[in-house]
Nucleic acid binder design. Sequence first.
DNA 1: TTCTGTGAAATAGTTCACAGCG
DNA 2: CGCTGTGAACTATTTCACAGAA
Lengths: 236, 236
Amino acid sequence: MPSLPGVHTDASNRGGFGEGVSSATIARLSLYHQCLVEGATSGVPAISSDRLAELAAVSAATVRRDLASLGIQGTRGIGYDIKYLVQEIRGVLGVADAWAVVIVGAGNLGRALANYAGLAARGFPVRAIVDVDPALVGTSVAGMIVDHLDDIDRLVGERDLGVGVITTPAAVAQDVADRLVAAGLGSILNFTATPLVVPAGVEVRQVDLATELQILSFYRRRTAAAAAGTGVPLES
Amino acid sequence: MPSLPGVHTDASNRGGFGEGVSSATIARLSLYHQCLVEGATSGVPAISSDRLAELAAVSAATVRRDLASLGIQGTRGIGYDIKYLVQEIRGVLGVADAWAVVIVGAGNLGRALANYAGLAARGFPVRAIVDVDPALVGTSVAGMIVDHLDDIDRLVGERDLGVGVITTPAAVAQDVADRLVAAGLGSILNFTATPLVVPAGVEVRQVDLATELQILSFYRRRTAAAAAGTGVPLES
DNA sequence: TTCTGTGAAATAGTTCACAGCG
DNA sequence: CGCTGTGAACTATTTCACAGAA
């Protein structure tokens, strides 16, 4: 089963368009999209909720609920028309619009993300990378010159930036976030472990690699303990 | 507000030790730990659920529930003893044990993670990096020589590896996962968008950057639409 | 018959609110 | 007093299970 939570700030349902669509659904939608365009769906024109569920590793009921909650309809006895489905999902996710990304922090992680082709391929071209370190500003990363964070206001306007990605040391993450918000960015992806405080209307999501690994190791230890112990209640 | 995850496979509660502790709780625990060791908690010996909640950006009731679910006790009228609290959280998270990491895929993302000091600092030293590309095998990354994926069995034993991190192209992610599992790894962090199928007992978590950005842009569009006007239900 | 769409039940997770300890 | 620990309410999300469309 998917989901959960990890450590993401999920500023869930406010009023307006898309009301009633949970962020869990959005996350899966992205997954469905991925499965449909990459998956072994070639040939057939339609796909059943069962098959899509299998590809995405979720339950069929969940697939149907997700799609129904977006008003996407299938055909009984047949399934969902793949072309239509992909188009609808794209519409909902806004894949059509490109959201230009600025990476703050030209360290290892920042440089890696700047070079990561997967982002541009899915509609998030990296169009700027900034830092405050004089040794890094002016250097070239992924075909771009590293700008100074002080120029962020100008860059946001000039390059039509929509999302800021913070890959700085945790200690300065909040300061950086404040500056991004001041520069007009309303979406922030935070790779530091610091929870960010932002004004209403700004969306933040947090991805903390060490936390992910800790969750993993917690469950691992637990499974190990369960397997080792006497009253092993593990399934088959 | 908090929460998670994004697109994480959450192989939740099986029987055994730690039963009744949700992965959402574990994720927050990691956050509490972070706040306690880095936060402005200096001086005072104890911290209230209110204050910790503020630092971690969650509700006080959630903090109390989380800690109570682990059997961590506070003192009424005072709060939780910080030293004891940190120690207990470390015990639960298993921070004491180092879990050595092998990175599969020596591309940009893999190299960045190998160089990312934050992992080792939090108990996850990167002790191997492998790839299948002859042009990469044998090169040096973060002070290590890139090994061939074929040597994974030997590496797992020799270097006591515990977690595999997949940063390969999505198309081969499942194959890689199968090999990691066969080599004895029971924890996998998957950076590709492909949902992995693994046998029971193996834990997988998925982190997909593009999905995170898509969730972000979905909410952004929605807020924008809500702000833009009365009944406007779609893009500008 | 196959497969959707959806009430209703089940499960998970969060917040309220307050009794009661130190 | 202040602050924890927790029953109970509430909200969110998933799953069951089945009526009914194609």
